[in-house]
Design a protein around this nucleic acid. Structure first.
Lengths: 174, 174
DNA sequence: CTCTAATTTCAGTTAAAACAGAAAATTAAG
DNA sequence: CTTAATTTTCTGTTTTAACTGAAATTAGAG
């Protein structure tokens, strides 16, 4: 399992970036490797390509599967597991965003609602502080609602919106 | 420096979330504390409120300043430094996004361009792999351009766009 | 210029996460 | 049912980042 220079560069960079995105290097590297691979790979092939322990691959793949980024497949007459990543970049993006929404935005929203309510009854808390909490809650609520609005919009529409970014903002600002 | 229950909850949660966003707990807690504080705080007050080492506050604040999230201010006849966070949630959001763009998106874009070019000359690399790299590059480029389009749009316009999310997507999809 | 308050730097410690390798468990084939 | 292949779980080690406390530095007051 010899990775070409370009593929190697990609995988290494992705691993590095992964550490800044809440996951660890190996998980991100495996995802990158599977994304670039023209066909599904076995765990032992991943071990070979990335020089990591078999056990590490096992737990990392479990994590990727739990995110919905990687699927298991099989080959007739071969009982070993094969894995492949989502291949569509937009789909990948959607899944990652959805995960982050679940794991970060939702808990934060819950916390802010509790804080916003609780702080109102705190007589000694400055009114500015109360307002700041309300503002943050409002912001996160707005972001959350906006996400719900667009999360199921087809990719073709999303790309159109992005290409027309400038024009849309001009239209709306009038 | 006694934090009210609601403020305490907010600060602790923010610290927890910070660890998932590339920064460490203390940095995020200090930002949260300053955001909620009706007036600028001194380092010793932060030490007191969060029970962390003075040196830790010093380095954390330096990090927050480097991001542009926190400013130093002074009080007449007092040579100690005071600190305050950006107070506007949208401004906070903009600054954070801009930072992440610089530190994550830009390097990734550079890597992808190099890979996309380099992989073309690799005769043994599967054409599917080449296409995957191209697709990822295209995606990141589109996202990057879209960001440039909207980063300077005034907050009022952005909120309008977010509130009208559904209507806009319907409009564009036609 | 000297002394003191305040901040920063630095070295060592602690804590947390990632990882490897061995052991255990699972699964299919004979 | 037994065996061999494969995967998962678990424990201990390594690595990395965060944090503390002491020492060094900076900057203002007298």
């Amino acid at each position: 399992m010899q990775l070409s220079p370009a593929v190697q560069k990609y995988v290494l960079h992705w691993g590095e970036m992964g550490t800044r995105w809440g996951t660890n290097r190996t998980v991100a590297q495996i995802q990158a490797l599977l994304y670039l691979s023209p066909k599904p790979l076995r765990a032992d092939q991943i071990v070979d390509a990335l020089s990591v322990a078999r056990s590490n691959v096992s737990t990392s793949i479990r994590e990727l599967q739990s995110y919905g980024l990687v699927r298991m497949t099989h080959v007739l007459g071969d009982r070993r597991d094969y894995f492949e990543s989502l291949h569509d970049v937009w789909e990948l993006f959607r899944v990652i965003i959805e995960q982050r929404k679940q794991r970060e935005l939702n808990p934060t929203l819950a916390m802010l609602r509790i804080c916003a309510e609780e702080v109102e009854s705190e007589k000694d808390t400055d009114s500015v502080t109360k307002e700041r909490i309300r503002n943050m809650l409002k912001f996160v609520e707005t972001a959350s609602e906006f996400y719900e609005d667009i999360k199921d919009v087809p990719t073709s529409t999303l790309t159109k919106i992005m290409k027309r970014g400038k024009r849309i903002t001009k239209l709306v600002s009038m």
